[in-house]
Design a protein around this nucleic acid. Structure first.
Lengths: 217, 217
DNA sequence: TCTCCAGTCTGAGCAGTGTTCAGATTATGA
DNA sequence: TCATAATCTGAACACTGCTCAGACTGGAGA
């Protein structure tokens, strides 16, 4: 079952194989899941022999790393867009919008997202570009939280990162839809309510006297 | 490189192969990561031929499903333990303890945890036991949240599940330690602060008049 | 106690995988 | 124009998941 038909080339050299491999791989993940991704299969989709990819990527992990790094770049752009938007009424609103952007990204780019948070696939310790791109994305959240004036911005940044990631993972795995059915609500609505609640709780946290007192001690 | 030495048997029949396969698999994940897990390798670790596991598990996914289901059972026990403990001063405290138990589980049973949230490995749609065990674990959180009297318990339950899972995933992937270094703090302390913050924000949420008003409308 | 059989295990085999490599082909730049 | 570097092919190797015929054996029924 070919996702792209793997039409034959008339030229010996492909011309833009690197890009096509990345695209074919993302397409494949979105269509059949990460389990269906093999380098040979990706090569086939791109209409190229099994050995060809190795002139552009050191190994399978390198291809997935490229996708992961690109994904973090796209995510960073989305987060920056959410943070920079006008009409902010409170820090909580801004946080809610950012978390929503996080989840929206995962649903719009499921192929990238599924690779980004599976470190055993992309071996980030061998591919520092992934680490750097990931740090840049987290940085957006950290700076946003820093402006909120909360007592422990690092802890909050970490929590928001974890929550955004967790919600996105649940949405992708179908657990969100499943739970929404059990609870007899709309999945998108459920998600929106969860995100809104996060925003309100952040607002509550910034206004808490107990929060600031903690670090004064 | 053998994790367990794969010592020879003197009997033709193993006797408790099913259990040993599960244990060897968990051991392997903890020692070398999920990428190193192959059924042949697990069979070798158990000192048995490549075909033997198929008398106990339909396929690779079935073995991983068994581990996943068992993991959810262990998690449920831990969560129940955290919920039922004495000395609760507020709903937020109880939530914080439960989230902490979630993260602690992931760190104590990394082998199980890594399989539990990778649905493409265990194919839960084919193995309903995994779904059921997972639902039971989530149920603990849902009931806890239900007792808090918050306006939208479903949304909060989902968020807490996502946050607990996200924090645990970050802790396992080493991102927590990495960030702690960047921020010049202790990873365990950072985690404890994040969890405590979640508890306080839940307390803030339950006391918010705006929360209850939403559902009165 | 013997016998038989269902459950267990072996080992060969198939198709598919990641990766390497010699050799064929072609773009590039001197 | 032509050597060189980059790219691609296809065969090969060791590995994987999985199947299956046949070897083994614990235990129930005679």
């Amino acid at each position: 079952m070919e996702v792209n038909g793997s039409r034959k080339r008339e030229t010996y050299h492909h011309g833009a194989l690197r890009e096509e491999l990345v695209e074919a791989c993302v397409r494949l993940i979105e269509a059949e899941g990460i389990a269906a991704v093999s380098l040979r299969r990706v090569a086939r989709e791109a209409g190229v022999s099994p050995g060809a990819p190795y002139h552009h990527f050191a190994d399978r992990a390198a291809l997935l790393s490229a996708i992961s790094a690109r994904g973090f770049e796209l995510l960073t752009q989305d987060l920056l867009g959410a943070v920079g938007r006008r009409g902010t009424t409170s820090g909580g609103d801004e946080v809610a919008r950012t978390v929503a952007a996080y989840v929206a990204f995962a649903r719009r780019q499921p192929g990238h997202f599924q690779v980004m948070f599976r470190p055993e696939l992309s071996e980030p310790e061998k591919h520092p570009a992934v680490q750097e791109a990931g740090d840049a994305a987290l940085q957006v959240l950290t700076e946003l939280v820093g402006r909120l004036g909360v007592a422990d911005p690092h802890a909050l940044g970490l929590t928001l990162w974890a929550t955004g990631h967790g919600l996105a993972a649940l949405a992708l795995d179908g657990l969100l839809t499943q739970k929404a059915e059990t609870w007899d609500t709309d999945p998108d609505d459920l998600l929106a309510r969860a995100v809104g609640q996060i925003g309100r709780s952040v607002d509550a946290l910034t206004g808490l006297p107990g929060e600031t007192r903690q670090h004064e001690a």
